[in-house]
């Protein structure tokens, strides 16, 4: 190859481009889903459906207009809800992103 670069050869890691074109990372997903309707399922199987206000790196979640679903039945409604991230199994988009 043409070695036009100065003496110190770039370490191999620098040659790998940063995670390139695909925009499917968890961070990208979360950016896209804030403000949208989501289904949050906990490991216990309980679902929370609502509008995602925000979340943090622990997957702690703030939801608005929240409905609690147990076995497909609405068991509670909350104006706002804070869900502790360790209980979260998944966050799924409930409307088009």
């Amino acid at each position: 190859m043409d070695e036009t670069t100065p003496p110190p050869p770039p370490p191999e890691s620098e040659q790998l481009p940063p995670p390139p074109t695909h925009t499917g990372s968890p961070t990208d997903f979360l950016k896209g889903v804030v403000g949208k309707r989501v289904i949050v399922r906990l490991t216990s199987g309980v679902d929370y459906r609502g509008v995602l206000s925000c979340l943090d790196g622990y997957m702690n979640i703030a939801l608005e207009q929240t409905e609690e679903h147990v076995n497909g039945v609405v068991t509670n409604r909350y104006g706002d809800a804070f869900i502790r991230g360790n209980n979260v199994l998944y966050i799924s988009a409930a409307e088009a992103l």
């Binding site: 199987g45 409930a94 992103l97």
Partner: peptide, 22 residues
Amino acid sequence: YETTPQGKKKTKLAQTLLNGNN
């Protein structure tokens, strides 16, 4: 896919972030 005492249950989901913890 869930295996419950009532049998197997399938749920379809759109784009989903799955927690790596479990």
